[in-house]
Design a protein around this nucleic acid. Structure first.
Length: 233
DNA sequence: AGCCAGGCCTGCC
DNA sequence: GGCAGGCATGGC
């Protein structure tokens, strides 16, 4: 049977998680460009490995689109290596940097100078920038009102709803889940920022392969937690 | 030892 | 327009 998911319930999730975790203060990074670099490097990669790569770039003063553009591919590959997929990611970073310099004066913040949908499309035209990476750059780098969808978001929702998805949302369909959640939440940039970040914190603590629902802050309203609770009684 | 981690591109069909 | 296969490191 289909379990509904309404605005009120989603706001409750946010409220509970915010009380539990506080303001996540995302995304880690000293500058918007560093946030964007992290978004590219973390593709299918643990954050620990990304930090090593960012550290390497910082040591060479390369957290700057102008500097990355003028760096040799060999050097970039060497520095990005700890983040994995280094042959691709080094190219992605350079393509993104060139795009940013050419189109937005090298400033991630300037993505907000054009209509949001337009900025997203332009980002998606860059090789190596897919939907999640584009939205991460827009939300966490440029502080624009976009909700990031990632594997944590899917896993949370799957568990929370007990294996089903809302009407119109199909598993793996990024745009459908994003428009569903943003339509329900109708939040501002800060709200979307926090909502996604809080879901990641929750998922890392509780929504793993072998879920640890006790003491999950959502156990009272999550269908998976309720089932687990019932089983133990 | 093998699986996993905040994807994305390419080449098939 | 969906779907496998490839990409690669470091931690557990």
């Amino acid at each position: 049977m289909f379990r509904g998911l309404i605005r009120k319930e989603l706001l409750m999730v946010h409220s509970i998680l915010f009380s539990n975790y506080g303001d996540p203060g995302w995304w880690p990074g000293d500058t918007p460009f560093e946030v964007a670099v992290g978004a590219v490097l973390t593709q299918n990669t643990s954050w620990d490995n990304v930090e090593r790569a960012i550290h390497n770039l910082k040591m060479k003063d390369l957290i700057s689109p102008d500097r990355i553009v003028e760096t040799t591919d060999e050097e970039l590959v060497r520095l990005v290596r700890p983040a994995g997929f280094f042959n691709r990611k080094s190219i992605y970073l350079k393509e993104f940097s060139r795009f940013l310099v050419d189109r937005f004066s090298g400033r991630v913040e300037n993505l907000g100078s054009v209509p949001l949908q337009r900025a997203r499309e332009e980002l998606l035209s860059v090789k190596g920038i897919g939907k999640e990476t584009a939205d991460s750059i827009l939300c966490y780098g440029a502080s624009l009102p976009v909700l990031v969808i990632d594997t944590y978001t899917w896993r949370f929702l799957d568990r929370f709803l007990g294996g089903s998805f809302p009407e119109g949302v199909r598993k793996g369909d990024y745009d459908s889940l994003q428009s569903f959640l943003m339509g329900k939440l109708s939040g501002n940039a800060l709200f979307y920022n926090r909502f996604h970040a809080l879901l990641v914190l929750l998922s890392k603590d509780h929504c793993r392969k072998t879920p640890t629902c006790d003491p999950c802050p959502l156990s009272a309203i999550c269908s998976f937690g309720i089932e687990a609770g019932n089983r133990t009684k």
